[in-house]
Nucleic acid binder design. Structure first.
Lengths: 147, 147
DNA sequence: GTCGTTGCAAAGCGTTTGCAACTAT
DNA sequence: ATAGTTGCAAACGCTTTGCAACGAC
């Protein structure tokens, strides 16, 4: 976590960018967050640690970190979510009925990606958009309703 | 097209809802649109035919039609897009580099869906979110850059 | 001292909502 | 006449922007 911040620091420096208290707080927040987190949520959490950090600073920092390749964002039903690029390694499955979230391992995802690339020449990144559908429980409920 | 509007009319009636000139215009626009179309675009096009139609009416109508099962929406990189539910039958592939759009046939999509449902019990709807990635051309360009 | 960064306030954009007037039925 | 529907204007939530003050280097 500290080491993660440090390597980001180096990256920033190498591009003539600076490490400020605000950036440090934002980076810490994301590095300790589990999975993905929305810009708004980051703004709120950072506020608690370092009062006075403006949302626009959060957005600008997220942009910088994404350009540097430290972060990436994905689109879930609720909107954009950021995560460390180093663990983008899962595909979001979100149930459109109950909102439950599950995920595909990268192994499984890669098999799917290979199928697509083989037949289309298109090389998909299944982590960028979520996959919507019905979880096992809700499938049963739907069957009950329709019968 | 006329028959499509007519069947929607019946659906509305059967639920105690009404067919107004505004709705007729919106329905016509979507029924003649190719593939998918954004709420904003619908609003603009409808404006040209029937000046004075308010965007909020468009949003409300889209909601009604989606509840009735006539329409569905998908999430592309540019935001939500509506389409006739009857031809939701393709998966959007969008190139994150050049923006090119391609699509997967439902045959291909179903194979993928089966793979997921088999291993996860989760029944995906691959039409709801686009799939991001690199088109064949952009893959080559990326390779050139990184070498 | 330089130049990247921040906060602020304002504006942007797409979307939603309350309400009174309207109109399809 | 009875609801459902509309336009309007306002508010919404998220995000972006211009700019002057600030602060990391």
């Amino acid at each position: 976590m500290t080491s993660a911040s440090d390597s980001v620091l180096e990256l920033l420096r190498s591009r003539g960018l600076r490490m400020t208290p605000q950036r440090r707080a934002i980076i810490t927040e994301i590095m300790t967050a589990e999975g993905h987190i929305s810009p708004t949520a980051i703004a709120q959490r950072v506020q608690k640690r370092v009062p006075g950090v403006n949302p626009s600073t959060v957005y600008r920092t997220l942009g910088v970190l994404e350009d540097l390749g430290v972060l990436a964002h994905a689109h879930l039903e609720s909107g954009p979510e950021y995560h460390r690029r180093s663990d983008s390694q899962h595909v979001h499955l979100t149930c459109s009925r109950c909102g439950a979230e599950d995920s595909l391992s990268m192994n499984e995802a890669e098999r799917l990606e290979q199928l697509i690339v083989r037949h289309h020449g298109f090389s998909p990144d299944l982590t960028h958009f979520a996959i919507s559908g019905l979880c096992a429980q809700c499938q049963k409920k739907e069957r009950r309703l329709s019968s």
